[in-house]
Protein backbone atom coordinates (compact mmCIF):
# COMPACT_ATOMS: atom_id res chain seq x y z
CA UNK A 1 0.00 0.00 0.00
CA UNK A 2 2.83 2.41 0.79
CA UNK A 3 4.55 1.46 -2.45
CA UNK A 4 1.37 2.35 -4.22
CA UNK A 5 1.16 5.69 -2.45
CA UNK A 6 4.78 6.42 -3.35
CA UNK A 7 4.10 5.61 -7.00
CA UNK A 8 1.06 7.87 -7.08
CA UNK A 9 3.09 10.63 -5.43
CA UNK A 10 5.87 10.22 -7.95
CA UNK A 11 3.41 10.31 -10.83
CA UNK A 12 1.84 13.46 -9.39
CA UNK A 13 5.22 15.19 -9.12
CA UNK A 14 6.13 14.19 -12.66
CA UNK A 15 2.79 15.44 -13.95
CA UNK A 16 3.02 18.78 -12.18
CA UNK A 17 6.60 19.26 -13.32
CA UNK A 18 5.93 18.12 -16.89
CA UNK A 19 6.57 21.57 -18.43
CA UNK A 20 10.08 21.38 -16.95
CA UNK A 21 11.09 17.99 -18.31
CA UNK A 22 9.58 17.87 -21.78
CA UNK A 23 11.49 19.56 -24.61
CA UNK A 24 9.12 22.22 -25.86
CA UNK A 25 5.80 23.93 -26.02
CA UNK A 26 4.47 21.42 -28.51
CA UNK A 27 5.10 18.59 -26.05
CA UNK A 28 3.47 20.51 -23.23
CA UNK A 29 0.47 20.91 -25.47
CA UNK A 30 0.43 17.16 -26.13
CA UNK A 31 0.47 16.73 -22.35
CA UNK A 32 -2.66 18.87 -22.07
CA UNK A 33 -4.26 16.87 -24.85
CA UNK A 34 -3.59 13.60 -23.06
CA UNK A 35 -5.14 14.91 -19.85
CA UNK A 36 -8.23 16.10 -21.73
CA UNK A 37 -8.66 12.76 -23.48
CA UNK A 38 -8.09 10.96 -20.19
CA UNK A 39 -11.10 12.81 -18.76
CA UNK A 40 -13.06 11.88 -21.88
CA UNK A 41 -11.99 8.23 -21.63
CA UNK A 42 -13.01 8.15 -17.96
CA UNK A 43 -16.37 9.59 -18.94
CA UNK A 44 -16.96 6.81 -21.47
CA UNK A 45 -15.62 4.12 -19.14
CA UNK A 46 -17.98 5.14 -16.38
CA UNK A 47 -20.64 3.62 -18.62
CA UNK A 48 -18.59 0.76 -20.10
CA UNK A 49 -16.72 -0.37 -17.03
CA UNK A 50 -19.18 0.37 -14.27
CA UNK A 51 -22.59 0.23 -15.95
CA UNK A 52 -21.84 -2.29 -18.70
CA UNK A 53 -23.15 0.10 -21.35
CA UNK A 54 -20.99 0.80 -24.40
CA UNK A 55 -21.63 4.21 -25.91
CA UNK A 56 -20.49 4.92 -29.44
CA UNK A 57 -21.95 8.41 -29.39
CA UNK A 58 -20.03 10.24 -26.71
CA UNK A 59 -18.24 12.47 -29.19
CA UNK A 60 -21.69 13.92 -29.75
CA UNK A 61 -21.79 15.12 -26.14
CA UNK A 62 -18.13 16.15 -26.14
CA UNK A 63 -18.66 18.26 -29.25
CA UNK A 64 -22.04 19.56 -28.11
CA UNK A 65 -20.26 21.20 -25.18
CA UNK A 66 -17.41 22.33 -27.41
CA UNK A 67 -19.65 23.80 -30.09
CA UNK A 68 -21.88 25.54 -27.56
CA UNK A 69 -18.81 27.11 -26.02
CA UNK A 70 -17.44 28.21 -29.39
CA UNK A 71 -20.79 29.59 -30.56
CA UNK A 72 -21.38 31.46 -27.28
CA UNK A 73 -17.90 32.95 -27.31
CA UNK A 74 -18.42 33.93 -30.94
CA UNK A 75 -21.70 35.60 -29.97
CA UNK A 76 -19.84 37.76 -27.47
CA UNK A 77 -20.66 35.98 -24.21
CA UNK A 78 -18.13 36.25 -21.39
CA UNK A 79 -15.98 33.21 -20.62
CA UNK A 80 -17.81 32.14 -17.44
CA UNK A 81 -21.23 32.50 -19.04
CA UNK A 82 -20.11 30.59 -22.14
CA UNK A 83 -18.70 27.77 -20.01
CA UNK A 84 -21.84 27.59 -17.90
CA UNK A 85 -24.03 27.51 -20.99
CA UNK A 86 -21.86 24.84 -22.60
CA UNK A 87 -22.22 22.65 -19.52
CA UNK A 88 -25.96 23.25 -19.32
CA UNK A 89 -26.59 22.51 -23.00
CA UNK A 90 -24.40 19.41 -22.89
CA UNK A 91 -26.23 18.12 -19.80
CA UNK A 92 -29.58 18.71 -21.48
CA UNK A 93 -28.28 16.82 -24.52
CA UNK A 94 -27.04 14.04 -22.23
CA UNK A 95 -30.49 13.73 -20.70
CA UNK A 96 -31.97 13.24 -24.18
CA UNK A 97 -29.24 10.76 -25.14
CA UNK A 98 -29.78 8.83 -21.92
CA UNK A 99 -33.56 8.84 -22.07
CA UNK A 100 -33.52 7.42 -25.59
CA UNK A 101 -30.64 4.99 -25.40
CA UNK A 102 -31.67 3.54 -22.04
CA UNK A 103 -34.80 2.19 -23.67
CA UNK A 104 -32.53 -0.78 -24.24
CA UNK A 105 -29.21 -2.14 -23.06
CA UNK A 106 -26.49 -4.19 -24.72
CA UNK A 107 -26.34 -4.04 -28.48
CA UNK A 108 -29.42 -1.85 -28.81
CA UNK A 109 -27.75 0.73 -26.59
CA UNK A 110 -24.68 0.73 -28.85
CA UNK A 111 -26.80 1.24 -31.95
CA UNK A 112 -28.86 4.07 -30.52
CA UNK A 113 -25.90 5.96 -29.08
CA UNK A 114 -24.12 5.55 -32.41
CA UNK A 115 -27.11 6.98 -34.27
CA UNK A 116 -27.47 9.84 -31.79
CA UNK A 117 -23.77 10.63 -32.09
CA UNK A 118 -24.16 10.73 -35.86
CA UNK A 119 -27.02 13.21 -35.46
CA UNK A 120 -24.66 15.54 -33.65
CA UNK A 121 -22.07 15.02 -36.37
CA UNK A 122 -24.70 15.72 -39.02
CA UNK A 123 -25.69 18.92 -37.27
CA UNK A 124 -22.08 20.05 -36.93
CA UNK A 125 -21.45 19.31 -40.57
CA UNK A 126 -24.63 20.56 -42.17
CA UNK A 127 -25.99 23.33 -39.95
CA UNK A 128 -23.59 25.72 -41.59
CA UNK A 129 -25.35 28.82 -40.28
CA UNK A 130 -24.55 27.88 -36.72
CA UNK A 131 -21.46 25.70 -36.87
CA UNK A 132 -19.65 26.96 -39.94
CA UNK A 133 -19.91 23.47 -41.44
CA UNK A 134 -16.62 22.06 -42.64
CA UNK A 135 -14.76 25.25 -41.79
CA UNK A 136 -15.54 24.89 -38.11
CA UNK A 137 -15.37 27.70 -35.58
CA UNK A 138 -12.25 29.36 -34.28
CA UNK A 139 -12.06 30.56 -30.72
CA UNK A 140 -9.67 33.44 -30.22
CA UNK A 141 -9.19 33.70 -26.49
CA UNK A 142 -8.42 31.31 -23.67
CA UNK A 143 -9.66 32.39 -20.27
CA UNK A 144 -7.40 34.11 -17.77
CA UNK A 145 -8.51 33.02 -14.28
CA UNK A 146 -7.08 35.19 -11.49
CA UNK A 147 -5.21 37.18 -14.10
CA UNK A 148 -3.09 34.20 -15.20
CA UNK A 149 -3.16 34.01 -18.98
CA UNK A 150 -3.80 30.47 -20.15
CA UNK A 151 -2.49 31.40 -23.58
CA UNK A 152 0.90 30.31 -22.24
CA UNK A 153 1.10 26.54 -22.95
CA UNK A 154 2.52 25.64 -19.55
CA UNK A 155 -0.16 27.68 -17.78
CA UNK A 156 -2.86 26.00 -19.80
CA UNK A 157 -1.31 22.64 -19.01
CA UNK A 158 -1.31 23.29 -15.26
CA UNK A 159 -4.90 24.53 -15.36
CA UNK A 160 -5.91 21.38 -17.24
CA UNK A 161 -4.01 19.30 -14.71
CA UNK A 162 -6.00 20.90 -11.88
CA UNK A 163 -9.28 20.07 -13.60
CA UNK A 164 -7.99 16.58 -14.37
CA UNK A 165 -6.93 15.98 -10.77
CA UNK A 166 -10.31 17.18 -9.54
CA UNK A 167 -12.09 14.92 -12.00
CA UNK A 168 -10.03 11.87 -11.06
CA UNK A 169 -10.54 12.52 -7.36
CA UNK A 170 -14.30 12.90 -7.81
CA UNK A 171 -14.37 9.83 -10.04
CA UNK A 172 -12.62 7.76 -7.41
CA UNK A 173 -15.01 8.87 -4.69
CA UNK A 174 -17.91 8.19 -7.03
CA UNK A 175 -17.01 4.63 -8.00
CA UNK A 176 -16.23 3.64 -4.41
CA UNK A 177 -19.41 5.18 -3.03
CA UNK A 178 -22.60 3.29 -2.28
CA UNK A 179 -23.96 4.68 -5.52
CA UNK A 180 -20.97 3.29 -7.38
CA UNK A 181 -21.66 -0.11 -5.84
CA UNK A 182 -25.30 0.15 -6.91
CA UNK A 183 -24.17 1.00 -10.44
CA UNK A 184 -21.88 -2.02 -10.62
CA UNK A 185 -24.72 -4.16 -9.32
CA UNK A 186 -26.92 -3.05 -12.21
CA UNK A 187 -24.11 -4.03 -14.57
CA UNK A 188 -23.84 -7.56 -13.19
CA UNK A 189 -27.39 -8.49 -12.21
CA UNK A 190 -29.98 -5.90 -13.19
CA UNK A 191 -32.92 -8.15 -12.42
CA UNK A 192 -31.61 -9.04 -9.02
CA UNK A 193 -31.00 -5.38 -8.26
CA UNK A 194 -34.62 -4.61 -9.04
CA UNK A 195 -35.75 -7.34 -6.68
CA UNK A 196 -33.48 -5.89 -4.00
CA UNK A 197 -35.26 -2.55 -4.24
CA UNK A 198 -33.02 -0.60 -6.63
CA UNK A 199 -34.37 1.61 -9.40
CA UNK A 200 -32.11 0.25 -12.11
CA UNK A 201 -33.21 2.69 -14.79
CA UNK A 202 -32.68 5.73 -12.59
CA UNK A 203 -29.26 4.48 -11.50
CA UNK A 204 -28.19 4.09 -15.12
CA UNK A 205 -29.66 7.44 -16.04
CA UNK A 206 -27.81 9.19 -13.21
CA UNK A 207 -24.55 7.52 -14.20
CA UNK A 208 -25.12 8.65 -17.78
CA UNK A 209 -25.58 12.22 -16.56
CA UNK A 210 -22.29 12.10 -14.65
CA UNK A 211 -20.62 10.63 -17.70
CA UNK A 212 -22.08 13.43 -19.83
CA UNK A 213 -20.79 16.03 -17.40
CA UNK A 214 -17.26 14.62 -17.69
CA UNK A 215 -17.51 14.50 -21.49
CA UNK A 216 -18.66 18.12 -21.49
CA UNK A 217 -15.75 19.21 -19.30
CA UNK A 218 -13.37 17.44 -21.67
CA UNK A 219 -15.08 19.06 -24.67
CA UNK A 220 -14.77 22.54 -23.17
CA UNK A 221 -11.08 22.02 -22.38
CA UNK A 222 -10.59 20.65 -25.87
CA UNK A 223 -11.92 23.81 -27.50
CA UNK A 224 -9.81 26.04 -25.29
CA UNK A 225 -6.74 24.00 -26.10
CA UNK A 226 -7.22 23.74 -29.86
CA UNK A 227 -8.91 27.16 -30.07
CA UNK A 228 -10.92 25.53 -32.81
CA UNK A 229 -13.71 23.00 -33.32
CA UNK A 230 -14.95 21.31 -36.51
CA UNK A 231 -17.13 18.31 -37.48
CA UNK A 232 -14.45 15.58 -37.10
CA UNK A 233 -14.69 16.27 -33.35
CA UNK A 234 -18.17 14.77 -33.48
CA UNK A 235 -17.43 11.93 -35.91
CA UNK A 236 -17.77 8.25 -35.18
CA UNK A 237 -13.99 7.95 -35.02
CA UNK A 238 -14.00 10.49 -32.22
CA UNK A 239 -16.55 8.40 -30.34
CA UNK A 240 -14.60 5.22 -30.91
CA UNK A 241 -11.30 6.63 -29.64
CA UNK A 242 -12.30 6.93 -25.95
CA UNK A 243 -13.84 3.46 -26.13
CA UNK A 244 -10.52 2.15 -27.39
CA UNK A 245 -8.66 4.09 -24.70
CA UNK A 246 -10.86 2.57 -22.02
CA UNK A 247 -10.70 -1.02 -23.17
CA UNK A 248 -7.03 -0.94 -24.12
CA UNK A 249 -5.97 0.51 -20.80
CA UNK A 250 -8.37 -1.58 -18.78
CA UNK A 251 -12.06 -0.99 -18.46
CA UNK A 252 -13.61 -0.68 -15.03
CA UNK A 253 -10.50 0.78 -13.44
CA UNK A 254 -9.42 4.39 -12.97
CA UNK A 255 -5.83 4.06 -14.09
CA UNK A 256 -6.77 2.02 -17.18
CA UNK A 257 -8.54 4.71 -19.21
CA UNK A 258 -5.88 7.25 -18.24
CA UNK A 259 -3.07 5.00 -19.42
CA UNK A 260 -5.11 4.14 -22.51
CA UNK A 261 -5.61 7.82 -23.29
CA UNK A 262 -1.89 8.49 -22.95
CA UNK A 263 -0.99 5.55 -25.18
CA UNK A 264 -3.53 6.33 -27.89
CA UNK A 265 -2.67 10.03 -27.97
CA UNK A 266 1.08 9.38 -28.01
CA UNK A 267 0.76 6.83 -30.78
CA UNK A 268 -1.48 9.22 -32.68
CA UNK A 269 1.01 12.07 -32.37
CA UNK A 270 4.04 9.96 -33.15
CA UNK A 271 2.35 8.07 -35.95
CA UNK A 272 0.97 11.18 -37.58
CA UNK A 273 4.51 12.46 -37.94
CA UNK A 274 5.38 9.51 -40.17
CA UNK A 275 2.22 8.20 -41.74
CA UNK A 276 -1.23 9.57 -42.34
CA UNK A 277 -2.84 6.22 -41.70
CA UNK A 278 -4.30 6.95 -38.28
CA UNK A 279 -7.64 5.25 -39.02
CA UNK A 280 -5.87 2.07 -40.10
CA UNK A 281 -3.87 2.07 -36.89
CA UNK A 282 -6.92 2.85 -34.77
CA UNK A 283 -8.96 0.10 -36.41
CA UNK A 284 -6.11 -2.39 -36.27
CA UNK A 285 -5.45 -1.70 -32.61
CA UNK A 286 -9.13 -2.17 -31.89
CA UNK A 287 -9.16 -5.57 -33.54
CA UNK A 288 -5.93 -6.70 -31.90
CA UNK A 289 -6.90 -5.55 -28.41
CA UNK A 290 -10.33 -7.12 -28.57
CA UNK A 291 -9.02 -10.37 -30.01
CA UNK A 292 -5.95 -10.83 -27.86
CA UNK A 293 -6.09 -8.66 -24.77
CA UNK A 294 -9.72 -8.13 -23.89
CA UNK A 295 -8.97 -7.30 -20.25
CA UNK A 296 -6.79 -4.31 -21.20
CA UNK A 297 -3.20 -3.38 -20.52
CA UNK A 298 -3.40 -2.24 -16.90
CA UNK A 299 -5.20 -5.26 -15.42
CA UNK A 300 -3.11 -7.55 -17.64
CA UNK A 301 0.13 -6.04 -16.40
CA UNK A 302 -1.09 -6.02 -12.80
CA UNK A 303 -1.84 -9.70 -13.06
CA UNK A 304 1.63 -10.41 -14.39
CA UNK A 305 3.23 -8.31 -11.63
CA UNK A 306 1.20 -10.01 -8.95
CA UNK A 307 2.19 -13.40 -10.23
CA UNK A 308 5.81 -12.28 -10.41
CA UNK A 309 5.82 -11.24 -6.77
CA UNK A 310 4.19 -14.42 -5.63
CA UNK A 311 0.96 -13.03 -4.31
CA UNK A 312 -2.18 -15.11 -4.35
CA UNK A 313 -3.49 -15.31 -7.90
CA UNK A 314 -6.70 -13.36 -8.32
CA UNK A 315 -9.99 -15.16 -8.46
CA UNK A 316 -10.90 -16.29 -11.94
CA UNK A 317 -13.32 -13.82 -13.39
CA UNK A 318 -16.46 -15.81 -13.80
CA UNK A 319 -19.12 -14.54 -16.12
CA UNK A 320 -22.43 -14.01 -14.41
CA UNK A 321 -24.14 -16.83 -16.25
CA UNK A 322 -21.51 -19.50 -15.78
CA UNK A 323 -21.11 -19.30 -12.03
CA UNK A 324 -24.38 -21.00 -11.41
CA UNK A 325 -25.01 -24.67 -11.37
CA UNK A 326 -28.40 -25.46 -12.67
CA UNK A 327 -30.30 -27.51 -10.13
CA UNK A 328 -31.31 -30.92 -11.36
CA UNK A 329 -34.97 -31.04 -12.31
Amino acid sequence: MTARRALIGLAAVLLVALPLWVPGNYDISVGSEILIYAIFALSVDLLIGFAGLVSLGHAGLFSLAGYTLAVCLGAGFGQPAAIALALAVALAGTAVFAALSLRTTGVGFIMITLALGQIMWGLAYRWVGLTGGDNGISVSARPAPFGISLAVPSHFYEATLIVFAGAVFAYRVFVESPFGASLRGTRDQPRRMTALGYNVWMIRFSAFMVSGLLAAIAGILFVFRAEFISPPTAALTASAEPVLMAISGGSGTILGPIVGAALVELVKNVASAYISRWNMLLGGTFVVIVMFMPEGLVPGTMRLLRRRFGARPPAPVVAAGTAERKPPP
Partner: peptide, 24 residues
Protein backbone atom coordinates in the same frame (compact mmCIF):
# COMPACT_ATOMS: atom_id res chain seq x y z
CA UNK B 1 -16.28 -16.69 -35.14
CA UNK B 2 -13.43 -16.54 -32.65
CA UNK B 3 -15.36 -14.15 -30.49
CA UNK B 4 -18.54 -16.20 -30.50
CA UNK B 5 -20.50 -15.57 -27.35
CA UNK B 6 -19.19 -12.08 -26.76
CA UNK B 7 -21.41 -9.78 -28.76
CA UNK B 8 -19.69 -6.68 -27.43
CA UNK B 9 -16.29 -7.83 -28.66
CA UNK B 10 -17.80 -8.70 -32.02
CA UNK B 11 -19.31 -5.24 -32.37
CA UNK B 12 -16.02 -3.58 -31.55
CA UNK B 13 -14.20 -5.75 -34.06
CA UNK B 14 -16.65 -4.81 -36.82
CA UNK B 15 -16.04 -1.18 -35.90
CA UNK B 16 -12.27 -1.65 -36.00
CA UNK B 17 -12.49 -3.30 -39.41
CA UNK B 18 -14.69 -0.43 -40.62
CA UNK B 19 -11.97 2.07 -39.74
CA UNK B 20 -9.39 -0.06 -41.50
CA UNK B 21 -11.51 -0.32 -44.65
CA UNK B 22 -12.05 3.42 -44.60
CA UNK B 23 -8.32 4.07 -44.53
CA UNK B 24 -7.55 1.31 -46.98
Amino acid sequence: RRLAGSVLAQVLVTLGVAFMVSDF
